[in-house]
Design a protein around this nucleic acid. Structure first.
Lengths: 194, 194
DNA sequence: ACTTGAAATTGACATATATCAACTTATCTC
DNA sequence: GAGATAAGTTGATATATGTCAATTTCAAGT
């Protein structure tokens, strides 16, 4: 059960075993059935999650009440809604299980307490944020410059598991297009490859 | 000269004056003339900057060699290209002065050294990243869901200094549209307000 | 296996935005 | 302040994507 978590914290485990143990003791476990919410609309949720098993869908609602998917998390991913967790604001992001999920989590307040005792944990926390930021910088550039077709091609090449595991209607808004457009792009893409 | 920097580090100054002094001593200063690069294409730049004065434009090049503006920094902003600074990769992001600029900076290695002595600095560094992430999360949602018109309206309402200070041709690619479309949107927007 | 509802596809048409080219207006430099 | 260069505007047209409605395919539960 701790597979992914342990891997993520591998460096910590080697560098400061005490610190690793301390985090491990603070971790709680949560299981979600398919379609169950991890974070509901306007929840104030201060937890940082490690997704051990399953897939989660992260979405927001537009003014008109449409769902826009902003992210999907897979096994091994960290789940952190910074705006909600850090600013302690009601969440605009809703997170729901696309499949049955198993997660570990620690509350940010608990984690911050640990950082006061273990410098290695503060460092780990910062490094985790840095990595999340890099991923966001890259995705932002794609959102800003890629056409729908290019985005689809990117997913095909770089993250084919997205296409295998995530229903098209959900994928579409993630790419910033409608499901009909995605369907057409997919067809064209396949034709161009024979 | 330290105005903005000091303000940013205000909490640190009060909480741990030693740490504040230590950072201050590591800070270097750089001035840029208009149109001068802060970070050039493929530079490996490990610095974290505080923009004390001026405006910088952050852009990337597409496959076809077109410039896409991904960000503008104003007085008081932190400038940090995570991918380049953290992974020590050649930068895909180019940063150039839109006006004459004054900046303070510290190298990430130096900052990390300081974090080993001063816990308060590690905390500050992490908090800075958290704030940057929140801003990115919000912008990402806008990029994904707003039409060009909505983006323009958002800028008008939330960040009018963008419209006052940044030439339209640069603003356009930041919004993910062409300069012609921006020109038309602007006109329509003005007419609708009388 | 049958039924039901969800997901995906397709077509016709509407709209938003891009592209290219011409032109005007501002800004900079000598 | 005249000429040169960059920035912004406008028009005509092309392309990409959205919207709505009809249909087909797929999947889940009984």
């Amino acid at each position: 059960m701790l597979d992914h978590f342990a891997k993520y914290l591998d460096m910590l485990q080697q560098k400061d075993f005490e610190a690793f143990k301390a985090i491990q003791q603070m971790l709680k476990k949560v299981e979600l059935s398919k379609d169950e919410n991890l974070i509901g609309l306007h929840d104030i949720n201060k937890n940082i999650y490690f997704l051990e098993k399953g897939i989660t869908r992260h979405y927001r609602l537009t003014d008109k009440g449409n769902e826009i998917n902003i992210y999907f998390s897979f096994e091994g991913d960290v789940i952190l809604v910074t705006e909600c967790t850090v600013l302690e604001m009601p969440s605009n992001e809703i997170i729901v299980a696309l499949e049955d999920c198993e997660l570990l989590y620690i509350s940010r307040p608990d984690l911050i307490k640990l950082t006061q005792t273990y410098h290695a944990i503060e460092t780990l926390f910062r490094e985790m944020l840095e990595l999340q930021m890099i991923a966001m910088e890259r995705r932002q550039f794609r959102l800003q410059t890629y056409s729908a077709k290019q985005q689809y091609a990117h997913l095909m090449e770089q993250q084919p598991h997205y296409l295998q595991k995530i229903p098209q209607n959900h994928l579409a808004s993630f790419l910033g297009i409608t499901k009909e457009t995605l369907s057409r792009i997919k067809k064209k893409y396949q034709n161009e490859r024979g």
